[in-house]
């Protein structure tokens, strides 16, 4: 494997966003790119990352390899990079280590680190292609604020999507609260758009603890996409350049 990423910062932000959910995981490398799928310990949430080969320049992966990496170790090494550094990931066949090289774009500084790999026996789940009943795009900062605000009142949030808009509501010991968003187009700042694409009304309840955790990825993308269907996991997607993505799936609360 040899994969050069224009911004080391991208991988750093991905790792910062997921490391409180998953600790040790396999980075599956093949000629289409670098993928990661991992559940949290309680099997409530699933992280799915895809960094497509097009996100790298150049990208070369001659044989499929799984790089088993402890994310705390990876985070430590990624913190050694400067924010504008270019990152090259390298691994040999049947590797013991993954090699990370940071290059400064405007100086001759080159730093190099090896991280020891681990054997991780990871369960891989099949995620079915789903036509969701509601697809909502909204500013990622807005979603983060809603989740944090409602978590002050309750541990769970009901998300209801109708023709009128999307309503986030909660009920707790001190009282209740709700935030409703309607479709909204801002020509000057498309990052502020709220788009709601609905085929049938949806109402589901989710744990806010996990949603707040997912929102650590807000720095990766100005917009977040929420995809919902009744009685299936919520998809929270942060799109990255070149069709790469960081996705989180969250199992709904049941038995309301």
């Amino acid at each position: 494997l040899e994969a050069r990423l224009e911004q080391a910062n991208l991988l750093k932000k991905v790792v910062d966003a997921i490391k409180d959910l998953v600790q040790d995981c396999n980075f599956d490398c093949n000629d289409s790119g670098i993928a990661l799928q991992a559940m949290d310990n309680s099997h409530v949430a699933l992280v799915s990352m895809m960094l497509k080969s097009e996100s790298f320049s150049p990208f070369r992966c001659d044989r499929n390899i799984a790089l088993g990496i402890n994310l705390t170790s990876l985070q430590k090494v990624l913190r050694c990079a400067n924010s504008e550094d270019i990152l090259t990931l390298k691994a040999e066949d049947a590797p013991d280590v993954v090699n990370l090289v940071f290059e400064s774009a405007d100086s001759d500084r080159l730093s190099e680190y090896d991280i020891k790999l681990m054997d991780i026996d990871q369960e891989h789940l099949g995620i079915p292609e789903t036509e969701y009943a509601a697809n909502i795009s909204m500013p990622s900062a807005e979603f983060q604020k809603i989740c944090r605000d409602l978590m002050a009142l309750s541990e769970s949030v009901a998300i209801e999507c109708t023709k009128e808009g999307v309503k986030f509501s909660c009920n707790g010991d001190i009282g209740s609260g709700s935030v409703t968003l309607r479709s909204h187009t801002n020509v000057d700042k498309p990052e502020n758009n709220v788009e709601i694409d609905l085929t049938e009304p949806v109402a589901l309840t989710f744990s806010l603890k996990y949603l707040v955790n997912f929102c650590k990825a807000s720095g990766l993308s100005g917009q977040v996409k929420l995809c919902l269907s009744n009685e299936v996991p919520l998809l929270v997607e942060y799109g990255l350049a070149s069709n790469s993505y960081l996705r989180f799936y969250l199992a709904p609360k049941i038995g309301d």
Partner: peptide, 14 residues
Amino acid sequence: GSGQGNIKSFFGPP
């Protein structure tokens, strides 16, 4: 009350 669903009961083996 409401219980928490398990992601494995929705997404099967590949």
